[in-house]
Design a binder for these strands. Structure first.
Lengths: 226, 226
DNA sequence: TTGCAAGTTGACAATTTCTTGAAAAGCGTG
DNA sequence: CACGCTTTTCAAGAAATTGTCAACTTGCAA
């Protein structure tokens, strides 16, 4: 089921890109022009997350946050503000995001706040990853992963058996665009293998797909790990 | 069971945020416009705590406190007053809170006064913390903690095994927003280790989760403390 | 005032994490 | 096999985070 994002925005040409971008990323996006329209929209079901673009509206973001929370207590809210506004104020939003930012960053932040995406502990093969507690288990024992490795591993675990492109891994883990002029991804994948594979030189789980990216194989018919 | 907070307030736009904020923090909030309405509301059960916003009402806070206490002797009351009012007067409230303050502060104060949240002495591993008596035991002997350290330790003890983010520790212990431009939290955690760990340089209980926060580990499989 | 206790800040050390460049290894094709 | 290309690994060092110390501030009380 696609997560439903409610987009509350005035009329900035810029932000059509929000809509388009989010749809492209697999979200179901509903857009309304004001806080009151948002409340009315709740009749059709509370969305999974709301993004308020206060940069394009007269009404204060704080006020909208409040009114949304009255009707939908647990609704996560991302408040987009202009760069000159103080991001540390108490707006009642779960995240305050000053312009400008990349689409990728917004998507990552949304994913981070979506309840459905965070309560489950990811598991595949001998691996287990508790995102919230940042615990990683391989078979029976816990291992330590640096923050970046954790993100990379999470992405792989979210799509076992699927090839993940280098660009995507880089974008999601680094939140910047991949230009291919750095070996950081390779090095980190190497470290991940060191941490996770029994025999890093001949990885059984983290396979490289030449010229494309990587894939986490968990239901290969090989013998058992350990 | 969510704690039930009775909010007694006149009509200040500001204080809708009280309602929304408290709900968001997991309280069950009931709002009435006057002291007499509050008394009537008692028919539906005495709440766990009352917040009187005397800044938005004509009736004196003192009078409302008194009438509430007549019907509900042990009900904790927080009285919100305007900044120019003397906070040291005898109002009959358990806490007098001058405007302005952050939501976080209000929540902390409420938690502090909620009976249900304070009768238990927290315990985990070799540690014991009697919140009310402000006693901290490590194994068999009592140690001294400064107020701030006490709060920090309390937060950790309330969530053994869970990672607590720096921001959250800072918010709850300092009641201001964490901007990351101070070493205070680190220093205090260092002191806490000095006070609580056998070998502060290699902490067994208070683990740091780099880039995230700290975690109190009490059921590690290591040998016993002492 | 003085002295003490608690907290804050800045400097620097210790440690961890990340990036980079270069060399080595791997893969597919002729 | 050699060739061109991609990926892996290593090692050095840069960057970031956290720990600790000492000086300083603040509030309180004798």
């Amino acid at each position: 089921m696609k997560p439903r994002i409610l987009l509350i925005e005035g009329k900035h040409a810029d932000h059509q890109s929000f809509t388009a971008g989010l749809i492209k990323k697999g979200f179901m996006v509903e857009s309304v022009p004001s806080g009151s329209a948002a409340l009315a929209h709740f009749e059709m079901g509370i969305p999974d997350l709301a993004v308020i673009d206060s940069s394009s509206m007269r009404t204060s973001g704080k006020r909208i946050c409040q009114s949304l929370h009255e009707k939908a207590t647990n609704l996560p809210i991302i408040l987009v503000i202009r760069p000159e506004v103080d991001p540390n104020g108490n707006y009642g939003a779960d995240l305050v995001l000053p312009l400008p930012f990349t689409m990728q960053k917004l998507v990552n932040r949304i994913r981070h706040l979506l309840p459905v995406e965070n309560n489950a502990t990811l598991a595949a093969g001998p691996f287990q990853l508790d995102v919230e507690q940042r615990r990683v288990m391989v078979d029976e024992h816990q291992i330590r992963l640096t923050p970046r490795l954790m993100i990379l591993f999470k992405i792989l675990l979210e799509h076992p058996g699927e090839v993940i492109e280098r660009e995507r891994l880089f974008r999601e883990a680094w939140e910047t665009d991949y230009t291919g002029d750095t070996r950081s991804l390779d090095v980190h994948m190497s470290w991940l293998r060191q941490a996770v594979e029994e025999n890093p030189r001949h990885p059984r789980y983290i396979k490289t797909i030449r010229g494309v990216g990587y894939r986490l194989d968990v239901d290969s018919s090989n013998g058992h790990h350990g």
